[in-house]
């Protein structure tokens, strides 16, 4: 399913790092020319990427706690789906998601 907040259908794939460079069940900050992206390695090995800025008060999501496919913001513990980018109730809002994939151990983001 696609939604208006992600980049699934546009942009080019860019190599980022090796999978092992992202801590298991953790996150890593990736800096592009204009902004930061938080890249996560989920417990089942999937890589997910979102804008590194919580919709609440811009907390750096990369430093949060990964649980399933949810990231818990380090600042005030909002929970955000890494699949849809949507903030889970009782709070609301959304962050932009970016498509991510792994090829030959290399993490790629579509930007």
């Amino acid at each position: 399913m696609s939604n208006h907040m992600n980049s699934e259908t546009s942009g080019k794939w860019h190599p980022v790092c090796q999978v092992e460079e992202i801590p298991p069940l953790g996150g890593r900050t990736v800096r592009t020319c204009q902004m930061e992206i938080a890249v996560f390695r989920l417990s089942d090995g999937r890589i997910r990427a979102v804008h590194n800025s919580c919709p609440h008060k811009q907390g750096p999501l990369a430093d949060g706690i990964v649980s399933g496919d949810t990231i818990i913001c380090p600042m005030h513990a909002w929970k955000i789906s890494l699949e849809s980018g949507e903030v889970l109730p009782p709070d609301s809002g959304c962050v932009k998601t970016y498509s991510a994939k792994v090829e030959d151990g290399q993490v790629l983001l579509r930007l």
């Binding site: 860019h14 190599p15 800096r31 990369a62 930007l111």
Partner: peptide, 16 residues
């Protein structure tokens, strides 16, 4: 402890 170091990729994001 690599979470301290950000990864830089010199990319212009199209729809930032």
């Amino acid at each position: 402890f690599n979470e301290y170091t950000p990864i830089d990729i010199p990319v212009e994001v199209v729809n930032a």
